[in-house]
Every structure is written in structure tokens, then in C-alpha cells.
């Protein structure tokens, strides 16, 4: 009998891990957005003194790792595991970022859902008694993502209104077996959902069914009332994707429109020319590590369901005309 398993997709922790600290670093555009006061560091230049966008991104990972440990007043050597991933081919931002740390590392790929995936796995490592301190790290960089997935930066092309803007940022979350909360109480692991959307410029529409599927499964598995959470916050659906997810959930009898929010909508202002909103691993990671963690710590939010969403495509699959498989991982975080 699996005593910690709830329904088909959910795990409930016996000794819920504490989120002991978080840290976030963002780029200049994010630093002009509405959440600017909540980030630990705002870069004034996307290259940050490095010779390539990729190395700038891995520098963010490296710095956010030490900031996370520092914010928890823990020595980096007390970290048992790092769980990290990013969007670049072979997750180079993560592995280059932690290569000097000397800490055992699991590389994780969940595209933009990576923060949800690493927090889920980290919480299981801790509740399973395999670790006391786990750092979950992820990053994305507008410039490195553009060159990998789209066009050279200086190409004078237009984007459609459904397109999203990859967030330049890295977030770190330190999960610990000891502490006073906020706690990771439950996780609901997503399954891959593919509704046949092929448009790389409309990822919100591709990912919304995955987000709705995981949120639906969470309520099914736990039997919680629909108004249980103060906020349900998806990763990077953007304005259009958030609306679609809300519609899909409503048609399945889950009416959470008033508490459903999205990190991609929160991180940029409408005026910032980010079209439908932010995206990328760094989007949900920095909004959680910056804004949401602050709200939880201050008791402005007490129960949230954090649902980072990922589009599991590659430049090759897009060019070969394949549809976009998507996933969303839910992490239920509560004070007390």
C-alpha cells in the first residue's frame, strides 16, 4: 500500500519539506516590470560581462545558487543535492552553472515546467529521507532562447500578438527537512497532453490543456473544495493561455477564474511589448522565488497551488511539422 500516494497523480507528504529560502536574478526588461521590487538582483546588461548569452545564463545559475544558500544562512556544503535544468540544448546553463559547486546534481528537463518538476522531486527526496537540503534551480535567457528556438536577435521581424517573451532570469528554491514553512504539502505530477497545436508562436494555447489537466487531477485526487487555495498560479500560459485554461476548467466544472493567475501575465506590464506575456523556465522560477515566496512569508497568501507549465518541443520537431506536447506539474504550498 502506498501511504503517500493520493489518487492517480498526487503525492501527499508525511513530513512536508519547508521552503527555507529562495533567490532570484532577472534581466533589465524584467527589472522594469511590475514585480521588480521582489527580485534579489536586476542585471543592467543581458551579457553580464560574459562572452556569450549561454555563459551569461549559466552565470545567473551559479550566482542564484550561492544567493539561495546565503538567504537561508546555510553553507553551500550543507546542500545534499542540486536539481537543475533549463531550456538550452543538453541543459548547459544548469550544468555549467553548478560545475564548480562540488554538490551532487540531478539534471532535469521539463522545459518551462522545470521549477515545478525540480520542486516535486526535491520534496520527495526530502520526505523520503534521502536528503535534508535540496536546491532547485532553473533559468532562461531571452537571447539564448531566441537564437536556439527562433531568429537572430537583430533580425527585423514582427511577432504575432499570441507570441510570448522569454524571461531572462534564474530562480533558486532551497527545500529543507527542518523549518517553519511555508511547506510543500502535496504535488500533482502532470502527464503529457497534446491537443495538436503546432504554432510555436502560440505556446499558451498549446500548454493550457496540460495546465487544466493537472489542476483538474489535483482536485480529483485530493477531493479539496475548489475555493481551498488563495491563488492557483500557472507558469507561463500568458494572457491567452490563461483564459483558455480557465475555459477548459470551467467546462469540467472547476470554477477558479477569480483565483487563477499566471506568472507570464504577472511578470510584464501590458506596455512592455511582451505580447501575450512572459515564458521560459525563468518565468515561473523568478515569479515564485521573488514575488510568491515573499507573499507566503508575509502571510498575504497562505495556500497556493503553483503549476509551472512546459512545452516539450525542440527546434527539430517544430521544423518537421510535429505538434507540441505539453506538461504541467502542480506543487501545493501552504503556511502551517
Amino acid at each position: 500500500m502506498l501511504e503517500k500516494k493520493l489518487g492517480k497523480q498526487t503525492v501527499i507528504f508525511k513530513q512536508p519539506p519547508t521552503i527555507a529560502a529562495t533567490a532570484s536574478i532577472v534581466g533589465p526588461k524584467e527589472g522594469k516590470g511590475p514585480l521588480a521590487p521582489y527580485f534579489d538582483q536586476i542585471l543592467d546588461n543581458e551579457l553580464w560581462g560574459e562572452r556569450s548569452w549561454e555563459m551569461a545564463e549559466s552565470k545567473m545559475v551559479r550566482e542564484v545558487l550561492s544567493k539561495t544558500a546565503l538567504n537561508a544562512s546555510k553553507a553551500v556544503s550543507r546542500i545534499d543535492y542540486i536539481l537543475a535544468g533549463d531550456l538550452l540544448n543538453q541543459c548547459i546553463a544548469a550544468s555549467f552553472g553548478v560545475r564548480e559547486s562540488g554538490i551532487p546534481m540531478f539534471g532535469v528537463f521539463g522545459a518551462c515546467s522545470t521549477m515545478g518538476e525540480t520542486m516535486s522531486l526535491g520534496a520527495m527526496l526530502i520526505d523520503g529521507g534521502f536528503a535534508s537540503n535540496v536546491v532547485c534551480l532553473t533559468s532562461s535567457h531571452f537571447c539564448s532562447a531566441e537564437r536556439q528556438f527562433r531568429f537572430p536577435l537583430e533580425l527585423g521581424a514582427q511577432r504575432p500578438p499570441t507570441a510570448q517573451w522569454t524571461v531572462t532570469g534564474a530562480g533558486g528554491v532551497l527545500l529543507s527537512s527542518e523549518g517553519t514553512g511555508p511547506f510543500v504539502k502535496k504535488i500533482t505530477t502532470g502527464k503529457i497532453v497534446d491537443m495538436g497545436i503546432k504554432d510555436q508562436n502560440n505556446m499558451g494555447a498549446a500548454m493550457a490543456p496540460a495546465a487544466a489537466d493537472t489542476i483538474f487531477a489535483h482536485f480529483e485526487d485530493t477531493g479539496l473544495p475548489q475555493d481551498y487555495y488563495d491563488m492557483i498560479v500557472t507558469g507561463d500560459l500568458g494572457r491567452i493561455g490563461r483564459e483558455i485554461a480557465d475555459d477548459l476548467l470551467s467546462s469540467n466544472g472547476i470554477r477558479i477564474g477569480s483565483i487563477l493567475n499566471d506568472c507570464g501575465v504577472m511578470i510584464f506590464d501590458m506596455k512592455q511589448d511582451a505580447h501575450s506575456g512572459g515564458s521560459g523556465c525563468g518565468c515561473s522560477a523568478t515569479v515564485f522565488a521573488g514575488f510568491l515566496y515573499d507573499r507566503l512569508k508575509k502571510g498575504k497568501l497562505n495556500k497556493i497551488l503553483f503549476v509551472p507549465t512546459g512545452a516539450l518541443l525542440s527546434p527539430t520537431s517544430v521544423q518537421q511539422g510535429e505538434s507540441i506536447p505539453c506538461i504541467a506539474h502542480a506543487v501545493a504550498i501552504e503556511n502551517g
Partner: peptide
Amino acid sequence: MTGDEYKKYVDSKAPDSK
């Protein structure tokens, strides 16, 4: 909802370029 129905629904949601 089938894939085709979903695509139609998404098209109706996506704002057109100006």
C-alpha cells in the same frame, strides 16, 4: 474536445494582428 475542435476554439480566442 477533439484536436480540430480545439484548434477552432483557439483560433477564435487568438487576437488578430492589427
